[in-house]
């Protein structure tokens, strides 16, 4: 973990996310402010339903706050149209989900290649980059396998490789070890450490204390707010 926070990548100011439900409005995130610096490693913890994942989705520009503002690299995300927000996600943000979300009809290498192809990377370059990334996550030998032929840990590692495909500045991981056994989870956690050490800011939402303890900054949420913050 050599990288140190320097410039701000994401800044959320007084962000609130409210969902309209039949029984009345539910506040997943309430008046929350947060800054993620370049190269930072942040873990978000808290009980189920406290708004961790919602906050992560807002930081990753896949969800929009009901009020408050979010800036990414100084750009007000609310002012960006869907197309620009999609391209921001494609080029600057990598996502890793608990359920992997790999495309089942593509091989591991093709899954890694896809975001690069969409970002306009030439075929030889993206083939080389996909090979490198699969080697990076220790799956070079499984490049031609489809997700159904991979174990849970392998699928998550492919998902991490895919998330890193366009060299994002920010990697967001939502319960990345949630569906993995302890040993495999350790392996994935070590991989996230390495990603962060190589300069990518990482924000991980997790129930796993062991994984959270690897982060330099741990935020504990309660009722949509940051209840406690500890820094290593």
């Amino acid at each position: 973990m050599s990288a140190l926070p320097s410039s701000t990548i994401v800044e959320a100011t007084s962000v609130t996310r409210q969902f309209q439900m039949p029984a009345g409005p539910v506040f997943a995130v309430r008046d929350l402010s947060l800054t993620i610096a370049a190269g930072a490693y942040t873990a978000i913890q808290g009980p189920s339903g406290c708004g961790k994942s919602t906050l992560l989705h807002i930081l990753g520009c896949v969800d929009t706050p009901s009020s408050g503002s979010l800036t990414f690299d100084g750009q007000d995300v609310a002012r960006l149209r869907d197309h620009a927000r999609s391209l921001l996600r494609l080029r600057q943000i990598g996502f890793v989900f608990q359920r992997f979300y790999l495309l089942p009809m593509l091989t591991a290498a093709e899954n890694v290649e896809l975001p690069q192809a969409e970002a306009g990377v030439s075929k030889p370059t993206r083939l080389e980059r996909s090979r490198e990334l699969l080697e990076y996550v220790g799956l070079a030998a499984r490049a031609g396998h489809r997700p159904s032929q991979l174990s849970g840990g392998e699928m998550q590692r492919v998902a991490i490789a895919r998330a890193l495909a366009n060299r994002p500045r920010l990697l967001l991981a939502d319960e990345p070890t949630g569906e993995l056994d302890q040993a495999t989870g350790e392996h994935v956690a070590a991989l996230l450490d390495r990603v962060n050490a190589d300069g990518t800011a990482v924000v991980v939402v997790t129930h796993d204390s062991a994984l959270a303890s690897r982060a330099r900054r741990v935020l504990t949420m309660k009722d949509g707010r940051i209840d406690r913050e500890t820094t290593a």
């Binding site: 896949v62 869907d82 197309h83 999609s86 391209l87 921001l88 996600r89 494609l90 080029r91 943000i93 996502f95 989900f97 979300y101 790999l102 495309l103 896809l114 975001p115 969409e118 895919r162």
Partner: peptide, 10 residues
């Protein structure tokens, strides 16, 4: 959904 999450524009 996955394509949208990856960042493919609608």
């Amino acid at each position: 959904g996955v394509l949208r999450l990856i960042g493919l524009p609608a």
